[in-house]
Design a binder for these strands. Structure first.
Lengths: 221, 221
DNA sequence: TCACTCATTACGGGAAACAGTAAAGTAGTT
DNA sequence: AACTACTTTACTGTTTCCCGTAATGAGTGA
């Protein structure tokens, strides 16, 4: 079992639950912080003291308050941490269950497990720790297919750009002009209408508003 | 101190934290459920057994799973409970910090305290329990001005409903009809346009698409 | 070169959204 | 009842979106 674990989670009640679980698993030293910046400093310091953490468990979203923070989310923190210390095992423990998010964390940031907070959150957390001990990656059932091959209806880069501009409040004509200026093809108003129509059908959206709402939920933009 | 308390909260980690806090406060019997329906049944049964709960602590949002539920949210449950047993003290313990919601729960449903989950959530919970013991209402600092006269900048429940329908792909006319059918006022097409215009200005959105994108990012819908 | 396909662009009509103003309804005060 | 302040509804243009169809252009094979 891990001997030295750091937990970063802003809610004190959840912290309590995690602490109990880790304690029951036999973890000797359990440190807890409520801000990402504190987590960063603690991890750095532990390494300087030649007593590094063996496991880092963190939430993704942290409520902002009066304290000015360098890292305002678990994502940002993990990106830095895993870049500097790729060997430190990390578990994300979050309510977030959108697959693109999970995929990015696992594939790009190389986190070792993704556990969704839920009724069985602490059980899943235990499973994740066991999995990491045997050097495998763990995903909660809710997000288990995050790493499966993407759906066959391939969304192109152009579509993402288009949807992004749409969500930023540009009219179709403004998007057309924007594409013309930036040499993105196709750029005619007609083509943009056509492409949006295709996307609406593909995502079963009633109108452009609905379409943007759907792709935002999917985490595409 | 209360002797018999029921806690309804779906996340097991939070449950653990609440349990410890109540235990430290000296509560003898602490029962915990993870579904609203279970809470309802337990409360009813306790009264039939002539050993009623003295305090009921509940979350508002519950993740839905395979189990079909009569009550899918803490709101719905509290409405029924407080109607049947107005004397049962109730604390809402939720991340939700929008004032109209809090106001409705306190004023309409007569709940006795509203505690926001946060870094100091468990401390606030303790405060709330102390306040209820001396027969006063408690609100976390985050929502302390929920009962103050509302400013016109405030997002009302109606606005949320409106934005929600919009994001689901209904046209403004369809939303108007939907509101008429469900006796939500105002419901005229003109009023809906007017309200959306206000929201667009408030959120600095160029159009309805932009507006929905913004409020989705803010997590309002 | 001709015919064919496919992507892009252009155009027109109808529906919805957007903007502004006027009218009708509601509530509280005097 | 009359006044005020406010909310809700109704009505009228203008713009944008939505949808179908047709024209243009580029590339491919016979």
């Amino acid at each position: 079992m891990f001997k030295k674990v750091l937990v970063s989670e802003d809610m004190d009640d959840i912290n309590k639950g995690i602490y109990n679980t880790l304690h029951d698993l036999g973890v000797k030293q359990i440190d807890q912080v409520q801000y990402c910046d504190d987590a960063y400093l603690k991890i750095k310091k532990a390494i300087l003291d030649e007593a590094p953490y063996e496991l880092f468990i963190t939430d993704l979203s942290f409520k902002s308050d009066h304290r000015e923070q360098r890292f305002t989310s678990g994502d940002m923190l993990l990106k830095s941490i895993k870049k500097e210390y790729p060997d430190l095992k990390a578990i994300v423990y979050s309510v977030e269950d959108r697959l693109p998010k999970v995929r990015a964390l696992i594939q790009d940031f190389k986190v070792n497990a993704y556990v969704c907070k839920s009724r069985r959150g602490l059980v899943e957390l235990t499973n994740a720790i066991q999995a990491i001990l045997s050097n495998s990656i763990y995903l909660s059932p809710e997000v288990n297919n995050a790493l499966k091959p993407k759906s066959n209806l391939e969304i192109e880069d152009f579509d993402i750009k288009l949807l992004k501009q749409l969500s930023l409040g540009l009219s179709q004509e403004e998007i057309s002009n924007h594409f013309k200026e930036n040499n993105i093809s196709p750029s005619s108003l007609s083509s943009i209408e056509k492409r949006l129509n295709k996307l609406r059908i593909q995502f079963k959206a009633n109108n452009a508003i609905h379409l943007v709402a759907i792709v935002k939920d999917l985490g595409l933009i």
